[in-house]
Amino acid sequence: MISGILAYRNIQNSILNGVKIPHSTSQPLIFGENGKYYLAVFVFFFSREDIEKGLVERPTMWAVADIETGKIIEIRQTKNKEFSDASYKIKYNVRADAQYDTSKKYYEKAFAILDSCRNEIINTDRFNPEEYKHYLDMIVANIPKEYQRFYFDLSV
């Protein structure tokens, strides 16, 4: 199993096949489908105006990746395979609503929790919801309130 940080970097580097479009990729999440667990991320696109206003569209793309290697299995468009019931008719506030801890140490701790969850799934085929909740709580603590919903919608 590669580290969650490395898996995330691999996903980020391959999600758009090198196309340079302003976008952001969510932190990796554990996603369940057909009785199996995967890593998943969502992507949202934005313009300079969106960032200046602090309002962005909801995610329109997401990817499912191997939980052990982080290799992308499938890239999905929400118009074909939805993960959220959030509206496409509004933009979501992404202005910082708190002082966030974005330090390397903070994310290393969060990813250590994710890696522990992944390791348990890989080695015992068991998912620990309490431990994963701790990871998810740490990740969404650094996400503006309106955008947190997409993390919860995509997660197991």
Results as ranks from 00 to 15, higher is better:
residue 8 Y to F: 15
residue 136 L to N: 00
residue 6 L to I: 12
residue 62 W to C: 01
residue 67 I to R: 03
residue 120 E to W: 01
residue 2 I to D: 10
residue 119 N to V: 01
residue 110 A to V: 03
residue 107 Y to F: 14
residue 138 M to G: 02
residue 136 L to F: 00
residue 152 F to S: 01
residue 47 S to N: 10
residue 156 V to P: 14
residue 85 D to T: 14
residue 124 T to A: 12
residue 78 T to A: 10
residue 90 I to K: 12
residue 149 R to T: 03
residue 55 L to V: 05
residue 82 E to F: 14
residue 92 Y to H: 04
residue 134 H to E: 13
residue 106 Y to P: 05
residue 59 P to T: 07
residue 132 Y to N: 05
residue 138 M to L: 08
residue 38 Y to K: 08
residue 102 T to S: 15
residue 153 D to C: 09
residue 42 F to R: 00
residue 76 R to M: 06
residue 112 A to F: 07
residue 68 E to M: 01
residue 54 G to W: 06
residue 156 V to L: 03
residue 82 E to D: 15
residue 97 D to L: 03
residue 116 S to V: 04
residue 60 T to C: 04
residue 26 S to P: 05
residue 46 F to R: 10
residue 80 N to R: 13
residue 124 T to C: 13
residue 63 A to G: 04
residue 98 A to V: 07
residue 109 K to T: 11
residue 4 G to C: 06
residue 119 N to C: 04
residue 75 I to A: 07
residue 54 G to L: 05
residue 111 F to R: 06
residue 14 S to G: 07
residue 46 F to P: 04
residue 57 E to Q: 14
residue 95 R to S: 12
residue 52 E to L: 15
residue 10 N to S: 07
residue 47 S to I: 07
residue 97 D to Q: 07
residue 134 H to W: 01
residue 142 N to H: 02
residue 65 A to P: 03
residue 149 R to S: 12
residue 3 S to Q: 06
residue 140 V to D: 00
residue 121 I to K: 02
residue 78 T to I: 14
residue 143 I to M: 01
residue 52 E to H: 14
residue 119 N to W: 05
residue 7 A to R: 00
residue 125 D to A: 14
residue 10 N to I: 03
residue 43 V to H: 00
residue 72 I to A: 04
residue 64 V to L: 04
residue 15 I to P: 00
residue 48 R to V: 13
residue 88 Y to R: 13
residue 118 R to W: 03
residue 126 R to C: 09
residue 55 L to I: 05
residue 137 D to N: 08
residue 31 F to I: 02
residue 148 Q to K: 12
residue 101 D to N: 11
residue 128 N to S: 01
residue 55 L to D: 01
residue 135 Y to C: 07
residue 7 A to W: 01
residue 145 K to N: 05
residue 91 K to F: 09
residue 119 N to E: 07
residue 108 E to C: 07
residue 28 P to L: 06
residue 56 V to F: 10
residue 49 E to F: 13
residue 27 Q to D: 11
residue 113 I to E: 04
residue 134 H to R: 12
residue 139 I to G: 00
residue 129 P to Q: 07
residue 92 Y to W: 09
residue 77 Q to K: 14
residue 156 V to N: 04
residue 61 M to T: 10
residue 98 A to I: 11
residue 99 Q to I: 15
residue 115 D to T: 10
residue 53 K to P: 08
residue 85 D to W: 11
residue 68 E to K: 06
residue 94 V to R: 03
residue 29 L to R: 02
residue 101 D to A: 06
residue 107 Y to W: 09
residue 122 I to G: 01
residue 79 K to L: 09
residue 58 R to C: 02
residue 49 E to S: 15
residue 14 S to I: 03
residue 109 K to M: 09
residue 129 P to L: 04
residue 96 A to Q: 14
residue 45 F to Y: 09
residue 25 T to S: 11
residue 141 A to D: 15
residue 46 F to K: 13
residue 87 S to H: 06
residue 59 P to N: 05
residue 28 P to D: 06
residue 146 E to Y: 01
residue 111 F to A: 02
residue 142 N to T: 11
residue 153 D to K: 05
residue 22 P to A: 12
residue 105 K to A: 15
residue 72 I to S: 07
residue 83 F to T: 02
residue 67 I to L: 11
residue 105 K to L: 12
residue 110 A to E: 00
residue 106 Y to R: 08
residue 87 S to I: 09
residue 120 E to Q: 08
